[in-house]
Amino acid sequence: MSQPDPNYAIARIDLPDAGTHGWQVRLQRRGIKYAKFFGDRVHGHPEHALLAARRWRNALLEKLTDQARICERSPRNSSGVVGVSKITVSAANGTTYHFWQATWSPAPGQRRCVKFSIKRYGDREAFQRAVEARTEGIND
């Protein structure tokens, strides 16, 4: 199993014309965006700013993980399979596409998602492929 990226959700920001140098942490969970900038000058050195960004990110992930819901079958689950759902995507031109989607979390802080077109595979086969993809994903 590979090691998680130590700079997950952290990006380097260097804008010399604006005098901005530092590390930006950006995460989104359940539609809520979290962001914080860690300037080199404030922290005394780029490496110190990076360490502060990692600490903040880790504390945020821990807090968000503690709040995560337990995956149980919900009355809102119409597929009958946790992590498999039927979704509709609307393109900018107004065309709608229908998929069966499988989602899973291979490791803390990671999310995987795969969609299977109902138009291409038909409803039953797209659903079955989504179920298989999720099963394989959580067993890897």
Rank of each mutant, 00 (worst) to 15 (best):
S2R: 14
S2K: 13
P4D: 10
N7G: 11
Y8I: 03
Y8T: 10
Y8C: 12
Y8P: 09
A9W: 09
A9P: 01
A11E: 15
A11K: 15
I13G: 06
D14E: 12
D14Y: 09
P16I: 00
D17E: 14
A18V: 08
T20L: 14
R26I: 10
R26H: 10
R30W: 02
G31N: 07
G31C: 08
A35K: 06
A35C: 01
F38K: 01
G39V: 02
D40E: 00
V42Y: 06
H43G: 04
H43V: 12
E47D: 11
H48W: 07
A49Y: 05
A52M: 03
W56D: 03
L60N: 05
L61A: 08
E62C: 11
K63T: 14
T65E: 04
D66F: 00
A68K: 08
E72K: 15
S74E: 06
S74W: 09
R76S: 12
G80S: 03
V81W: 13
V81T: 10
G83Y: 01
V84T: 06
V84G: 03
V84L: 10
K86I: 05
I87V: 09
T88D: 01
A92Q: 14
G94E: 08
Y97V: 11
H98L: 10
T103S: 13
W104H: 04
P106K: 08
A107Q: 11
Q110C: 04
V114K: 14
K115L: 09
F116L: 00
S117R: 11
I118S: 06
I118Y: 03
K119F: 15
Y121G: 04
D123F: 08
D123S: 14
D123W: 05
E125L: 09
E125V: 04
A130F: 00
A130R: 00
V131D: 04
A133K: 04
A133S: 06
E136Q: 08
G137D: 01
I138G: 05
N139I: 09
